[in-house]
Design a binder for these strands. Sequence first.
DNA 1: TGCCAGGCGCACA
DNA 2: TGTGCGCATGGC
Length: 351
Amino acid sequence: MSSSAPHLDPSSTQSAANFTGLSQIRLPVWNYDLAETLISGQAFRWKLSEARTDSEPCPRPSNRSPVGRIRPGEPFDALGIRPSRLAGDRLALPSGPWEGVIDRHWVRLSATEHAILAETAQPASSVSWIENYLQSRVDLETILATFPDDEPMRAAVKACFGLRILRQDPWECLASFILSSTKQIIQIRQIVSLLCERFGEPVAVPPGHSPAHSFPSAQRLCACPEAELRACKMGFRAAYLKGAADMVASSAIDLSKLSAREIGEARESLLRLPGVGRKIADCVLLFAYGFPKAFPIDVWVMKALRKLYFRGRQIPLRRLQRFSEEHFGPFGGYAQQYLFHYMRRRKRGSL
DNA sequence: TGCCAGGCGCACA
DNA sequence: TGTGCGCATGGC
């Protein structure tokens, strides 16, 4: 069974529709970096809001270095991120707000000093769904305290402080990572966007806003001809996605029951799906089910482990997996995401 | 223009 | 058990 992360106990509040016509939910947070979390390659549906104001950097956890001010008019790159300019060890990130769809809720997220403001097009019956997705009540410092006290981890935490692991819908997470194989994150976002646009259900958006769609169900995708999936630019991954959708829709695998299993059993179940190997299975275990020991090793993490812990030697993947299980502690999955994001930042020249 | 990307499945040694 | 290759596509 997946062990739960340590939790704080602030209370979230919800207010009725305001003059903008949007309902607002205020989530108290501490040490939460919304921008780092949403762009770190664990979810693929977040983009900068159509209503962004464009002038201030995103508020960052207050016990770390402030970031540099962004100059109006600087272009955004393909991911919606401005060319990086550093203040101290932190990247200047766009202010948001960010827009995305969680289940069937269109959501706009903004960060303030000690809260995340979530705006929805329709009043929500509760706040638990968004607290759960954002993991806003998780006590990050307790998790970080379990990381190994070595130089690579200290550097990664310093650079990405406030990054959280989201808790995504299992099918959306699984399907998205099946599509991630040998694709850049920007391309995965494009494929997922096309998939939702063509096969998802429309969701309520603010007046005048462009349409938004839910992530298509397994039932919907298994009914699609493979050629229509390929038309979403996913190439050979279309057969994998369709095969996995078939198994989920036919109940050959019950995604709703994996969270109650031991991590090894849950992983074995996921590995039965076409297009799912150890890496993708661990992504789903970590990002959808919250198994804190799941440690996806992709090309970035493999390079990081070899370079930072084995002096660049060509250590076999199996040995790296054993090393990761032993070295990174009970929240190894969190440590992995910090290393992954840190390495990508360094590669992009933003660190 | 060529390299590479949050891999996987398969054949082969 | 490990290695090499093919698979589509597009960003950089």
